[in-house]
């Protein structure tokens, strides 16, 4: 079984700060990590490796320093690592990102493609599903667990708002996985020591199978008009009163704001 896991390097914070003048994200002083959902997806792949001796390739698109998460992936036990980096990829929105990734995947053998559900910086959850569309593969998002049935079939537990669905999918397919799907293992000491002796393949736009017009800023229909940090809400009003009186206050406040019908 050949698995590809798409991993993204993200700032280690759930609170993105935006420079109000340039409208770009402030990355200074924020350490970079492997996106948590991607770590969940990678662990899922590693378990398939433990059990079925799967071969794992990790791929990331990003600046040269994104190599760090590829080394981390080697230390966790993957077999091959590819860094997509090229000025032509810069300024990509989700569509251009998924086009670049799909273009690379066309040049790699796979039975299964795993992505994270969502990146904690961009937060769109679009890249995985878009990639599946470009490659015309079946996709299951919000994956919490999988079971491999040998005959190329996966039984998949997909989380929904109400509960979960049990699905069956034939490989090859694309899964987008939740960080909560499993507890990620620790890197091993020998994994860390040997990770830096392994080869990280660097691929530019010329190495992937996609129309260059679909890459980077050119390939991005999204135009960001303005980026801003959401304003803080004002301090709430505090009433220290008995329960009955409190209910009265809440009701009248809701009426004031037309949340419930004023009489």
């Amino acid at each position: 079984m050949k698995i590809i896991v798409c991993i993204k390097q993200v700032p280690d914070t759930t609170e993105i700060r935006i420079n109000p003048e340039t409208g770009t994200m402030i990355r200074d002083g924020v350490p970079s990590i492997m996106n948590p959902d991607d770590k969940g997806g990678l662990e899922m792949a590693l378990r398939l490796k433990d059990e079925f001796n799967a071969h794992i390739t990790v791929i990331t698109m990003g600046p040269p320093q994104a190599e760090n998460i590829l080394r981390e992936a080697y230390a966790l036990g993957v077999d091959r690592a590819i860094l997509l980096t090229d000025r032509k990829f810069a300024g990509a929105d989700t569509l251009a990102t998924s086009n670049a990734l799909a273009g690379a995947l066309r040049n790699i053998d796979y039975d299964l493609i795993i992505a994270g559900r969502q990146a904690i910086d961009g937060d769109t959850a679009q890249v995985g599903p878009q990639m599946a569309e470009h490659l015309q593969l079946p996709q299951v998002s919000y994956v919490a667990d999988i079971h491999y049935n040998q005959n190329n079939l996966l039984t998949i537990k997909k989380e929904t708002e109400e509960g979960y669905q049990m699905l069956e999918a034939e490989m090859p397919c694309v899964l987008t996985v939740l960080a909560s799907a499993n507890i990620a293992r620790y890197m091993t000491v020998s994994g860390i020591i040997t990770a830096f002796d392994k080869d990280v393949e660097v691929w530019g736009a010329d190495k992937i199978d996609v129309d260059e017009a679909k890459l980077g800023l050119k390939g991005s229909p999204t135009r960001v008009k303005k980026s801003f940090t959401k304003g803080r809400k004002g301090a709430g009003e505090v009433f220290e009163v008995e329960a009955e009186e409190a209910v009265g206050i809440i009701i009248s406040k809701m009426k004031e704001k037309f949340i419930i019908k004023p009489n």
Binding site: Y186, M187, I193, A195, F196
Partner: peptide
Amino acid sequence: TNREKLFLQMITDFA
């Protein structure tokens, strides 16, 4: 070194 940094990341997480 980069290797030591990655090691530190792991051992801090473990600790």
